[in-house]
Design a protein around this nucleic acid. Sequence first.
RNA 1: GACUAAGUAGCUCAGUCGGUAGAGCACAUCCCUUUUAAGGAUGGGGUCCUGGGUUCGAAUCCCAGCUUAGUCACCA
Length: 509
Amino acid sequence: MSIELSEQEILRRQAAEQMRQLGINPYPAPLFEINAKTTEILEKYPNDNSLFQQVSIAGRIMSRRIMGAASFAVIQDGVGKIQLYIKRDDICPEEDKTMYNTVFKKLLDIGDIVGIKGYVFVTQMGETSIHVKELTVLSKSIRPLPIVKEKDGVLYDAFTNPEQRYRQRYLDLIVNPEVRDVFIKRTKIINTMRDFFNEKGYLEVETPVLQPIPGGAAARPFTTHHNALDIPLYLRIANELYLKRLIVGGFDGVYEFSRNFRNEGMDRTHNPEFTCMEIYVAFKDYFWMMDFTEEMIEKVAISINGKTNITIGDKEVDFKRPYKRVRMSEAILEYTGYDITKMDEKALFDACKEMGIEVDATMGKGKLIDEIFGEKCEHHYIQPTFIYDYPKEMSPLTKQHRQSEDLTERFELFVNGKELANAYSELNDPIDQLDRFQQQLKLQERGDDEAMFIDYDFVRALEYGMPPTSGMGIGIDRLTMFMTNTPSIQDVLFFPQMKPEKTIDNNNQ
RNA sequence: GACUAAGUAGCUCAGUCGGUAGAGCACAUCCCUUUUAAGGAUGGGGUCCUGGGUUCGAAUCCCAGCUUAGUCACCA
C-alpha cells in the first residue's frame, strides 16, 4: 500500500489526463524556440517600445489571477519573472474557446511550464507584460509548489524549512530566487581564479580521487575497496602529493580544483565532501605565494562584488591588498603574553594548562602550539592576515625555515577569525621528508590518529629532485561563504550531505 | 558524539488547564472585475514525526526513537 495522494495531487493528475483527452500532450517532445529572456525584456523594453513585438518565451507559472475574459499570470524563466496578460479571444480567435476556458483556467496550475508567443506592452498599472497570442503547454506539474508571495519586497509564506530546502534544492531554487545568486557567484569565484592562473601560464590538471595512501593532509579518510585489485582504496583527503609529483615531472605550475573527502564531523562550516583549490609553482617560496594569494583574493572580491570591502556577518572585511603578516610566535605573544620561542615541550604543556587549554599526553610540541593559537589568537584576525612560520612538527610537508630549525616556511591566511588558505615553501629535501614522515609515524604510535601516513613513492619522486616550489591551498566553500556573506556551508553547496530520508515516495505501490 | 530547541493541511504558522483539529495562502464551486499577496461567498483537505506509557480522555504530560537546526567537541 502507498500513502495516499493529496487532493491537489489527484486534481493535477486528472488535469494532465484531461489535457491528453483534448489532444494536448502535457509533456510534448518538440523543442520550443525561445528568443527572449524575462529580465532582458524588463530592462530593454521601457527604453525602446519597438522591441519584443514577436516574443517567444518559456517559463514556469508562478502565480495566476483569473478573471472573466482576461487574466494575468507570472512566469519565471532561468533569469527572472515577467507578467503575462492573457485575453480569451486572443488565444482563442475562433469559436472554440477551450484553450482559454478549459486549458488555461482549469487545467493549468502554478508550477506548470508553458511556452508563450506574443508581444510586449505596458499595462495601465505600468508593468511591462507580455500580451499572449499563443500558449503552449510544455510540462505539467503534478505536485503543488510551495507558494511564496511577495508584495513591496515583503515575502509571505516563504519556503524556509531548512530540511526541505536542502533535501529538495530544486524547490528552493524555484521559489527562492536569491538562492540561485549564491551559486552563480560560487561559479564566478572559481572562474575568476581559473582565469587568473591560466593567464600566468599554469596548467589545470586532474589527479586521482581514489588513492591507495590518503596523503597530503591529516584527516580520517573514507575507505572503499577495489574488487578487481582486491585492495583498499581511500577517497582523497587532499591532492597535494600528486600535484608535487607533477612539479617533479617538470611542470612549472599546476593547479586543481579538488573535491576532497574527510570522514569527520559535520556542522555549519564542514561537509564530508568539500572543494579545495591547490596550486604549486616551481622556483617560488612562501613570500612570493603571499603576494600571489592576496592578488588572487583581491581579484575575486572585485569580480564578485565590484569592490574589495565586504560585510561578513556583523563585520566589515576589506580584501584590499596588502594583507598584514604576523609570525605565529608574535601572535601568541601578543594575545597570551607567552614567548613560545624559548619553550620546550614541557614548558609549552604547562603553559597550556595555565591558560586553561585542554591538553593530553599525545600532544607534541607542534600540536600544543597549534592549540594555543587556535584557542587564543585565531578569532582575533578579522581582516585578512597571513600568519606565518609554523612549528615544524605540525607541518610535515613544509620546508624547514631558512633561519630556524624549529620552524617551517608555512603561512595560513585568516579572515573573519577562520582559516581560509594554507601555503608552504614545499619541502623538497627527500631525506628530510622521509624523516618527517617517520616523525609522523611516531606521533601515530603515541596515539595521534591524525598523523600522516608515509608515502614512499612520493619520497622516491623527491629523490629524483623537485625544484624549490611554493604551494597554496584554499577552501572554495569557505571562500564562497565569505564572498557571499553566507554563514552556513550548506548554503554554498547545492546538495549538502544529510541523513537519508526514511520515506521519499508516495507513488510506488 | 554531548546538550538545547523544533516537527500540526501542499506552504507559513496558531492551538489556552489534558476535553470534537484551527487561520492565512494554495485547492474546488460560484460571483465580480485590466489585476498587483486581486476581492467576495461557500466548500473539501490532517498518520498532529514514529512507537510506547500515564489518563475516562493526549497535538498537549512522561519515556524511547527518527529528522532538522543551534551550541560545544573534531576538522577545512
